[in-house]
Design a protein around this nucleic acid. Sequence first.
DNA 1: TTGATAGTTCGGCAGGGGCCGAAGGATCAT
DNA 2: ATGATCCTTCGGCCCCTGCCGAACTATCAA
Lengths: 232, 232
Amino acid sequence: MTTINALSEVAALMGDPARAAMLSLLMDGRAHTASELALTAGITAQTASGHLARMVAGNLLAARAQGRNRFYRLASSEVAHAIESLMNVAGMRAPPASASAAWRRDPDLRFCRTCYDHLAGQVGIAVTDALTRAGHIEPEGTRDWKLTDGGDLFCQRIGVDVDGARRAGSRHFARQCLDWSERRPHISGALGAAIADTFFRRGWAERLRRSRTVRLTDSGRRALGSQFGATL
Amino acid sequence: MTTINALSEVAALMGDPARAAMLSLLMDGRAHTASELALTAGITAQTASGHLARMVAGNLLAARAQGRNRFYRLASSEVAHAIESLMNVAGMRAPPASASAAWRRDPDLRFCRTCYDHLAGQVGIAVTDALTRAGHIEPEGTRDWKLTDGGDLFCQRIGVDVDGARRAGSRHFARQCLDWSERRPHISGALGAAIADTFFRRGWAERLRRSRTVRLTDSGRRALGSQFGATL
DNA sequence: TTGATAGTTCGGCAGGGGCCGAAGGATCAT
DNA sequence: ATGATCCTTCGGCCCCTGCCGAACTATCAA
């Protein structure tokens, strides 16, 4: 019973024009301040504050305080995905203006803010596909990956701190993270973070300054071919 | 401007408990009568009638009159997809009770009513994965597939009417259809239908009588291995 | 024709929720 | 400290909308 109510509650949160306007802006994957969101929604700061609090409580948004600003962002790629599919039903073919501007400016941005510590986008997909193809990981249920013995060896060989990831407390070891744009699962969780760390440490990828974009270096491209047997 | 309102309107339609209950029931892919929907939503027939009319006007539902009954069903697989992704955000792991009953009764049913003319479920995923792996198709944007030259040849060879699919008027050629249960894209659109047609024509798959289920035959299982290099 | 069933439309009630003004913390700049 | 900025909480207004009772149409079964 609460199960059906949960559906309507999430939908109702998205079903208000002001909140929908905020969510649309946040679809660019970035974090925005409360006043910025109020402005684009065309409402006062007080009203916006109430809306934002409700969406945080409903696990649609995540908030982060910084100085006297509060930055809000979408809570997960699942939320982005849900909004996208609603837009699809609503007959919107392109993302709304503000988001599509950011999109063009930064075409490699694939909702990396919430996929912060692991590789997402096309690189993440390529790595995940290659590991799957080689039998190094296997889907386990609909939410996790299983690292096979061969995969364990492989990861150790290229320098991924698998044991460290295993010891990462309560954190999930290897999760399936559904990428917003690619719509296919890639590796997140502690192992995903460890793999990304290896990419950065070995100079295969680098974070762009002041951006959530990850760029694959030339040596990374070569490594993807020689180590993973994948091309991008 | 209407573009953002469209998002909130669709979400608002799904954001009422009574309407959400009806939509959940309709997630079984079947058509239900107005009174049936009123009953499960726990409201009177008058109230339900209003809700249903609004959802039809909003292109969420399609109605079909038959005698003195009116049958309502989800208007498209896009709607089903949107509901599913909202359920995902709401943290529902299993489909709601009523739908899960149909689910258990018919475990191969993967919302085939709206994916009517193309292969969905595990078979659709297996085919799509195999074609991707072989480089026969590539994701194009977030909504379409691109059929490569090699893929064109391959399809012709196994008897898929690719040219016919290309001539299919205004219909999309090869769409990414996100499967409800598998949560991964498979091929829909004209090409998806043509591939499914090949499977039926060559006896690789068969529709079960009076059911939306598609069964893979033994020869289909062999073909999947020999032609597609996939196992299931 | 008469009655029963399925569905819709209309009207009025009542509650929920979105909105803003006012006021109150928090943080930064000077 | 003083003011400015950012954000939040509180209180009250008001509209929107979901709800049902009643009445009406359409189909089916005698």
